[in-house]
């Protein structure tokens, strides 16, 4: 079978939406595989997903909603006989104390935790103050509101949309912190490297062990690399907000970092041969939802190696 060879990667999409020019349409119709596309689309026109009864489903939703909103006790109330009561009274007192302790621990500042494990694509954390955080794969976040601040502790990478409030929203990472009142911004903090990009509002960044504040405005990024060098960039580069649109973009980044991201996005282990130069830089983009394509794009450009996927391990094999 001839490999499909289209002049661009949205060609068939534009055919379906009727946006091809007359010439393009003629070109498509002269292809040997056109009949196959046309037949598949013909069949698809006659297919439909199972029916969805909106009215009935809405009634179900309403009754479930009523159940949850009424403060009805979760469990039936127990009425033990008096004798039994006497027997368990000391124990229940102890249990009550233990329960109070647990409740105190859990409710103290009301910490919520969120985790996007390796292989998860994205997790949307809805925070109690109405803000949201989108976590990239391999990241976790804890959130608590105190009287003086809204405190989010991040490991990894997340995009924040912060609701306006009187007390600041502070993102703490092991490498530095970001403080805002209401805005949206991206924080990357992994392997000794931190970068913050601002999309709306105003953001103030400080790095661990550095007393200075680095304010940035929309379209600006500030980062600190492993050597401690601070970099300002005027435009938010595609590398930083790439993952929000479901892909990973690297522009002249070391191979080690690319392999790390691949492991996080697809929950894999990449075996790294000793002879492989992990510091060599590459320009690579891969989708976060399509393993085969991602492997081809991320590993295809490594010269002298081919790759094989065995279970959840990728093995790089030197070519003869």
């Amino acid at each position: 079978m001839a490999t499909p060879n289209f002049k661009d990667d949205t060609f068939l999409a534009r055919w379906l939406s009727g946006e091809l020019s007359v010439e393009e349409e003629a070109e498509l119709r002269s292809r040997p595989d056109f009949a196959a596309y046309e037949r598949m689309m013909g069949n698809l026109n006659r297919m439909a997903p199972p029916a969805f009864d909106t009215k009935e489903e809405f009634q179900k939703l309403k009754s479930e909603r009523a159940l949850r909103t009424s403060a009805a006790p979760q469990q039936p109330v127990l009425h033990p006989r008096p004798r039994l009561m006497r027997r368990i009274l000391p124990w229940s007192a102890a249990a009550a104390v233990a329960l109070l302790l647990v409740a105190w621990f859990l409710l103290r500042p009301g910490t919520d935790s969120f985790e996007a494990a390796n292989g998860d694509q994205q997790l949307v954390a809805e925070l109690t103050d109405g803000s949201t955080a989108r976590l990239n794969a391999g990241s976790d976040l804890a959130f608590a509101v105190t009287t003086t601040e809204r405190s989010a502790t991040l490991n990894g990478e997340a995009y924040f949309e912060v609701e306006k409030a009187a007390i600041p929203f502070v993102v703490q990472t092991s490498l530095g912190e970001v403080s805002v009142l209401g805005t949206s911004f991206n924080v990357y903090s992994r392997n000794g490297e931190m970068a913050v990009s601002c999309t709306t509002g105003k953001v103030s960044v400080s790095f661990e062990g550095d007393a200075a504040d680095y304010p940035i405005t929309p379209g600006q990024s500030v980062g600190r690399n492993r050597l401690g060098e601070i970099n300002f960039t005027e435009t938010t580069s595609p590398e930083e907000l790439d993952w929000l649109s479901g892909k990973s973009v690297f522009i002249n980044r070391p191979l080690a970092e690319i392999l790390d991201e691949l492991e996080r996005q697809f929950d894999l282990t990449v075996e790294r041969p000793a002879a492989l130069n992990l510091k060599e830089t590459y320009e690579v983009t891969f989708p976060n939802d399509d393993l085969d394509t991602a492997l081809g794009m991320a590993l295809g450009s490594i010269k002298g190696y081919k790759h094989e996927l065995e279970g959840t391990t990728i093995i790089l094999i030197p070519e003869e």
């Binding site: 079978m1 499909p4 289209f6 990667d9 949205t10 060609f11 068939l12 999409a13 534009r14 379906l16 595989d33 196959a36 596309y37 598949m40 929000l244 649109s245 479901g246």
Partner: peptide, 24 residues
């Protein structure tokens, strides 16, 4: 889905090409 229209079109195109390949 919170993605760009271009990304949607690319996925559409890719879906058709893969269907054709899987259906060969």
């Amino acid at each position: 889905l919170g993605i760009s229209q271009k990304a949607v079109e690319k996925r559409m195109h890719r879906a058709l090409v893969s269907l054709r390949e899987l259906h060969a």
